[in-house]
Design a protein around this nucleic acid. Sequence first.
DNA 1: TTTGGTGCAAAGGCTTTGCAGAAAG
DNA 2: CTTTCTGCAAAGCCTTTGCACCAAA
Lengths: 136, 136
Amino acid sequence: MEAKNKLRMTKQRQVILEELRKVKTHPTADDMYQMLRRKMPKISLGTVYRNLEILSESGMIQKLDVGGTQKRFDADISIHSHVRCIDCGRVGDIDVKPHCNLEAEAQKMTDFEIFRHRLEFTGRCPLCQQMRKTTA
Amino acid sequence: MEAKNKLRMTKQRQVILEELRKVKTHPTADDMYQMLRRKMPKISLGTVYRNLEILSESGMIQKLDVGGTQKRFDADISIHSHVRCIDCGRVGDIDVKPHCNLEAEAQKMTDFEIFRHRLEFTGRCPLCQQMRKTTA
DNA sequence: TTTGGTGCAAAGGCTTTGCAGAAAG
DNA sequence: CTTTCTGCAAAGCCTTTGCACCAAA
């Protein structure tokens, strides 16, 4: 949140980045905390939050707000969209590249200065689809 | 959250719906609370939250999750997108209708069953644009 | 009446922060 | 050394909830 101080690559920050890069599950801060304590039992939840914030601010990861109450994190910083399962909350990647330039289209319709867009989908993940069939 | 009980149109619920329909500012629950206490000083914040939840579940309004920490509400239930000002948080409407069928496009790329999409923009509102010019 | 709703206040869930000691550069 | 970072715990913010009374239908 403060000015551009020099960042240190601490052990914690390094492990957080590594772990996030290993998974494709878009974990929440607490998910990360649970994963991390296995390798680094003394790490604190506050440190996890602080570093995820710093890493996303510096553009090394992205913070996602895909609905639900918790933010999620993604080490894949390429432009892509997400789907969120309405049953279990799981989040998946989708790389739809809209054919039209959405920012340009939007700019025509508003007096806001448009910077970027975010496209997200709602759906049901394979596991929950399966569960529906067997339960119904 | 519970089964389909019969809803009563209480004075509070009615006023909440009316007030939301009057504005195009996408207020948060607390914004609504502040607006409402002028007409109904004894209304409680809990009642505002409960009713906004009930009204959005019953499809009479929509609950927005446009980033930021608070949810926002919109009495316009037509399909449209939103822009959020990165400086002040203000939210505006945009009615871009993407030319392609985004759900269908997305469905090709995933094993999730896609239901719907949400398209949101980030930008700067007219007031904040103005403020930048005068400050800079 | 019957049953859902309200106000109030307390509880909850997720995230941020103050602080003293630890560690990177 | 200097300055950032960490762990811990407390505080914060937004939202939900329990309860006793109130009010639609």
